[in-house]
Write a protein that binds this DNA or RNA. Structure first.
Lengths: 217, 217
DNA sequence: TCGTGTGAAGACTTTCACAGCG
DNA sequence: CGCTGTGAAAGTCTTCACACGA
């Protein structure tokens, strides 16, 4: 069965990422084969979901046997387009920018940090890590002209989130990982993945309290 | 119309958080009334969604007029149970723990940091911020016995994510904001909200690349 | 017989269309 | 009229049930 890209649920993409994470752990442990049932219990999903998600992109399993861990990893990386290495930059080198720069495993997941930008005179020019120096945000246009970089982490203060997003999209960025906690607006052909700490807290607040209510009666 | 808690879609809760964020901005700008249409365009959702989401919890609007910003804020805070202040702790004071501790607006959103824990002898005893000292993770049981704290941010290294989650749940934590990037397993009556940086990157990789494919032909 | 891949059924969520009311 | 609140329809996603092949 052949699917068009627009038939593929968006949530399938997010689950592929989770499957991939577990598969990499299995690879480290030198496990070669895995069934959708086993993968389901390790990734907190379910077996049919896994098979359905994969079926949007092809047939990767062997009947009676399951999936080869190595080739499934390669397949999912191919789907997510992380198999050739993706460059990214960090905009705003405060606490959150620093946390992302040092986040473990990103390079291992084929995301490679190529630049860090800020507007603070005291930070510009300093070495952040791995020989990467903090660059003046005003130089971002020329920097992106000379590099093939599509992705940026936005980690500025709230009050400059939108103006900075406008600026980096203008300079050629296609996708933004938005860590600011502020909703930003981008053109329809660009992409934003929102991390909202407050939403996380509020979600937990609602569900932990809801449980209490049930326990009471 | 009256709904039971289990009839309320989980995504409604996440959207309430987004509406709340926008409403707070409106409050700052002294805007008193807003229609679902206006709120929709500001929050990147749609008007019917907003009305439906709110209708699960009651009737908050006035026909012909719209919603009062102040009372809708109070209503949503009441739903999310953030109206009386929620205490939380941070487990693991590396780069990510530091970023969360300094994340702007959490106190304003009624989430109040009450403790920071780590296992690094060099960090324990140091003051992190606002008079909060880093506490030995081994003291978490007695700490939680003496405080009414349900929520924790998990920001440890990957390799101790699960064992630390087990430990803090054992000590009484009900909900975990998981920043580790590793899937963790918790008992069914506890809650985890996952922030997975790698999933964010992979999602962006897929969608920015998909767009390229369309542009090519 | 076991585990994949997949149409079809079922469940859930969004959107439509409009009643109701100031 | 204009805007909310909401049954019902439409659309999307998940789960079921089973054909298929090793």
């Amino acid at each position: 069965m052949k699917y068009k890209p627009e038939d593929i649920p968006e949530i399938t993409i997010r689950r592929l990422s989770i499957y991939l994470q577990i598969l990499k752990l299995l690879e480290e442990r030198n496990i070669n084969m895995i069934s959708s049932n086993q993968l389901a219990s390790l990734s907190h999903t379910n077996a049919v979901s896994i098979r359905k998600d994969l079926s949007y992109f092809g047939e990767f399993g062997k009947k009676h046997i399951g999936y080869n861990v190595n080739s499934l990893i390669r397949a999912i990386k191919g789907i997510l387009k992380t198999d050739k290495g993706n460059y990214f930059i960090i905009i705003g080198y405060g606490n959150m920018g620093t946390a992302i720069a040092h986040f473990p495993g990103l390079a291992n997941d084929d995301f490679i940090l190529k630049g860090i930008f800020d507007n603070d005179e005291n930070k510009i020019g300093q070495e952040a890590l791995n020989g990467i120096r903090i660059t003046d945000i005003r130089d971002i246009h020329s920097f992106l002209n000379n590099n093939n970089i599509q992705l940026a982490v936005l980690a500025t203060p709230l009050n400059v989130a939108q103006i900075t997003a406008d600026n980096i999209i203008n300079a050629g960025i296609e996708g933004i990982l938005n860590m600011t906690g502020k909703q930003i607006t981008v053109p329809k052909d660009k992409f934003v993945y929102d991390f909202n700490i407050t939403t996380g807290f509020e979600w937990l607040s609602y569900f932990t309290y809801k449980k209490e209510q049930y326990n009471d009666h």
